[in-house]
Design a protein around this nucleic acid. Sequence first.
DNA 1: TCAGTGATTAGG
DNA 2: CTAATCACTGAG
Length: 171
Amino acid sequence: MPKKRLKRPFYNRDVLTVAPELLGKVLVRKFDNGIISRFVIEEVEAYRGEEDLACHASKGRTSRTEIMYHEGGKIYVYLVYGMYWMLNIVTGENSIPQAVLIRRIEGFSGPGKLTGNLSIDKSFYGEDLVFSKRIWLENNNEGVNFFATSRIGINYAGEYWKNKPWRFILK
DNA sequence: TCAGTGATTAGG
DNA sequence: CTAATCACTGAG
């Protein structure tokens, strides 16, 4: 059975539904030299709406957060600590700002490492996973087991949001 | 535990 | 324009 690219409806749902379902899915990257690499997604985090103080959209609609207000399936990338590009997948309907941080994929540990190895940078901001020729997600026929914990690196968001179990890890 | 590093943001 | 902040990493 051939692998199949995930389509719009998959992404256009609430981030708390999509995030755990991303576990076990395959991130596909086609490099400029034509080589195609596939990686199983192993760890993600959900960021949900303006009310979520850990979500960048809590600061409202800015040039950086703009893409999160679009329909699901778009890529949100940003630079953090001056060195690391973070790869996020926008979810939810239009005008509802949500995204899933891809925190770990098979073979690489850490969100900064994976974007470095996959050559993902600012040029991927707004890229559409449904149509892109250089990055997309494929279905995987496996069932997955996962567990949830609190999100990492968001001490600024306060106890309430910091303690939300919105980090999902493949077992 | 802590510094590196530069885009982004709020504020004057 | 300035200054503060930061969804990380690896060294010690």
